[in-house]
């Protein structure tokens, strides 16, 4: 999920506060697919991703396009508005009760050498690695991906050489949202969720992205690993309810010693 956020921020310098709520929608789509069509979330995540791609494209075309050049505080207001709309739409559609998607995979466990692992978590991790790799290939090996990187690197330069910058932004936003949709569906069997989960997910994503470095794909991935390991260790050694203490302390440490994040570019 942090990878999607990185893409959107890296390309457009727009901070997407609706991130967590988009992810919650990815989860509810997985829930619907599993309840109505009996589709396992580990398959259904593809559909979640496609749906969120469309949602991202619509939000970008309809709203974000108008404020790309506006100051950050305007963008934050708009994205918070989108977040509120998405959260309350979920509340109307699905009600406030916590939900969880059932998947046979999530219930089973295997021994991996000396360690006892959830199959669900293993698959989630595997798919996340695969998606990150695919995204990397897309960004570095295809024309559209390169155009996205170019527009992130120097938007004016991209305009000069005749890149359709609007189309590039829309695609980047759509793909960012699709990553989030996929992530939401993939964690839906592991994490109970309700419409209000969005905010805490947004905050966790920001934490990850800031630790990894704004705008860096690798940073987002490593940041994600760091934060989850830190939280798990915190839950074991302190108390489960204190796990966020560890990840946010990590954030403060990183900000103190490497303000641009682990893999972030320094401000010019």
């Amino acid at each position: 999920m942090a990878v999607g956020l990185t893409l959107i921020f890296g390309v457009m310098r727009v901070i997407n506060f609706a991130h967590g709520d988009m992810m919650v929608w990815g989860m509810y789509i997985a829930l619907l697919l599993s309840r109505r069509a009996g589709l396992d979330p580990y398959v259904g995540f593809v559909i979640s991703a496609v749906a969120l791609f469309a949602l991202g494209l619509a939000v970008q075309r309809g709203l974000v396009q108008r404020i790309v050049d506006a100051p950050h505080e305007m963008q934050i207001l708009l994205m918070l508005g989108v977040a509120l709309v998405l959260e309350n739409a979920a509340l109307m559609a699905f009600g406030p009760e916590p939900e969880r998607v059932r998947s046979p995979l999530a219930a089973s466990t295997i021994w991996l050498g000396p360690v006892f692992v959830d199959v669900g978590r293993l698959v989630t991790f595997g798919v996340a690695v695969l998606l990150t790799l695919l995204l990397w290939l897309f960004l570095f090996r295809t024309d559209l991906g390169r155009a996205i990187r170019a527009a992130a690197d120097n938007p004016y330069g991209a305009l000069v050489i005749g890149t359709d910058v609007r189309r590039v932004y829309a695609t980047a936003f759509g793909i960012g949202a699709a990553c989030v949709g996929a992530a939401g569906a993939l964690v839906s069997p592991l994490l109970p969720f309700q419409p209000a989960t969005g905010l805490s997910l947004s905050i966790t994503s920001f934490n990850i992205v800031i630790i990894g470095g704004m705008g860096s794909l690798l940073g987002a991935f490593i940041g994600g690993l760091l934060v989850s390991v830190a939280e798990s260790l915190g839950a074991v050694f302190l108390a489960p309810s204190l796990k966020e203490l560890v990840s946010f302390s990590l954030l403060i440490l990183i900000l103190l010693f490497r303000p641009a994040g682990l893999f972030g570019k320094r401000a010019p």
Binding site: A150, V160, I161
Partner: peptide
């Protein structure tokens, strides 16, 4: 019509080859 702008406006974190190929993206 190709425009070579003032201050060059390259893509600094991309390779020379990628910069060139972006000029022919169409």
């Amino acid at each position: 019509i190709a425009h070579v702008p003032e201050a060059r406006q390259l893509f600094p974190t991309m390779t020379v080859r990628e910069n060139l190929e972006l000029g022919a993206a169409r």
